[in-house]
Computed example of a mutant assay.
Amino acid sequence: MKTSLIIATRNQGKIKEFRELLSEFNINILSQPDFIQINENGNTFAENARIKALEVSGITGEYSLADDSGLCVDSLNGAPGIYSSRYASTDSERISKLLNELKNFENRKARFNAAICIAKKGKVILEVEGKCEGLITYLPRGSNGFGYDPIFEVLETGLTFAEMESEKKKTYGHRGIAFKLLKPGLNKLFEIG
């Protein structure tokens, strides 16, 4: 019987991305149960990932993978940071708000951060953090991805995440980078399919 791994999020974009990243492992990937409500009250991406993974694994008794990720913009002193998903109500509103706040700044440097934590029965098993450097574009570009993907151009590629195919995003993306760091530990925990 396959080991179950619960992705501690309700964000369907993240679940899809993790299903792809974890496809080579012989595990049953599940979504976080609807009845679990988590208060993300950490001060860093790593703390929030840990809070989510510990909560879900503690309640379910299963392995739980949680990530906390977000966009940190230099000219905005690192904002929206850990509040990236709560910066506004919808993806399009978040993008509009960010572009509006940056309109008077020449420095468009930014980075996506992703912290990933795996826990089991309320105990941390693995933790990693990955970063992807880039620039905020002046207008959204591309139709793939979710969140801030249409306005984040990855350095050295000339492409936003929303212009990339999923394989390329796995290579350059913050979650993909964090996942590469996580993979040796995953190989010890789970069999490859």
Rank of each mutant, 00 (worst) to 15 (best):
E93V: 12
Q37S: 15
F45L: 04
L99A: 03
A53G: 08
S75T: 08
N26S: 14
K123M: 10
K120Q: 15
E24C: 13
V124S: 04
I125N: 00
N28W: 10
G42M: 05
S92H: 13
N144L: 03
T44P: 09
F25L: 10
K168M: 12
E40Y: 12
E153N: 05
S96Y: 10
E40C: 15
E24I: 14
A114G: 03
P80Q: 06
I29W: 07
R108E: 06
T44R: 10
A162F: 09
E163R: 01
G130F: 04
T60W: 09
L30F: 02
E62C: 12
R111G: 01
K168V: 12
I29R: 10
P150G: 02
K131R: 05
I51S: 01
V124K: 13
G122L: 03
C117G: 01
K169G: 08
Q32E: 13
F152S: 02
I151A: 03
S31K: 13
N28L: 15
G70W: 00
A53D: 08
V124D: 03
G142W: 09
V56E: 01
E101S: 08
D34W: 00
I118D: 00
V128Q: 09
N107M: 09
I118V: 14
L159V: 00
G81Y: 04
G78F: 07
P140N: 04
I82D: 06
T160Y: 01
S166T: 14
I38D: 05
A114R: 07
C117I: 08
T137G: 10
I82Q: 06
N41S: 12
K170R: 14
G61Y: 13
L159T: 02
L54Q: 11
E153R: 11
A49V: 08
G81H: 04
F105M: 02
E24M: 14
I82A: 02
A110P: 11
A53W: 00
L65T: 08
I29L: 14
G145D: 01
T137E: 09
S166E: 10
I125G: 01
T60H: 11
V73W: 01
E106V: 09
E24R: 12
I118M: 02
R94K: 15
K168C: 02
L126A: 12
V73L: 06
K123I: 14
N77I: 03
L98M: 07
C117Q: 02
E93N: 15
K123Y: 00
E40R: 13
K97Q: 06
E156Q: 14
S92F: 12
Y172E: 14
K123A: 13
E62W: 00
E40K: 14
E165L: 15
I95W: 05
L159F: 15
L98C: 05
S84T: 12
K109P: 00
G147I: 10
K109A: 10
G81K: 08
V73I: 13
I51G: 03
C132N: 10
R86C: 02
S31V: 02
S75L: 08
L159N: 11
E101F: 04
K131N: 15
D67I: 09
Q32C: 15
I136R: 03
P140Y: 05
Q32S: 13
A110M: 02
E153A: 08
S57D: 03
F152M: 14
V73Q: 02
R94T: 07
T160G: 11
A88E: 04
E127F: 07
L71R: 12
